[in-house]
Amino acid sequence: MIVCVAVVGHQNNPLYLQSFTEADDALKLHHVVHCSLDVIDERVNNPKRSAPTLNETFLGLLYPTENYKVYGYLTNTKVKFLMVTTDLDVKDADARNFFRKFHAAYVDAVSNPFHVPGKKIASRSFGARVSTIVKSFGSGTVG
């Protein structure tokens, strides 16, 4: 189950962060997402390691911590997507698929002429769409 998704901007500032958990660990998820940015920095800035993944947007599992696993994705405009899940076994293909859909939703949201680039995403329809994507994750309908 996905418990949290986040969009993080160029200056590592949060643009969108939504948790989908009943428990009151929302703050913990903020921490987890924030700490995961270090791993993204490490993967993106390490030239030796990034060489074969030059055109790869999916960053993979960033950081297993406590009950969570964090997956990352970097768009070509250097906006970061993060997804926190409690699933034990996540298939790479599922995660990629999720991010692809999420990216599409993000692109639609920022294409809104009333959206100022670089600002937080407050669109409700984006939120609704993300919820749908999150709900369909891993249920087999993804794809």
Binding site: R49, A51, P52, T53, F58, G60, L61, Y71, G72
Partner: peptide, 10 residues
């Protein structure tokens, strides 16, 4: 594999 966190290297 240098691709941490993916199928190549869990």
């Amino acid at each position: 594999s240098p691709r941490f966190g993916t199928a190549d290297n869990a």
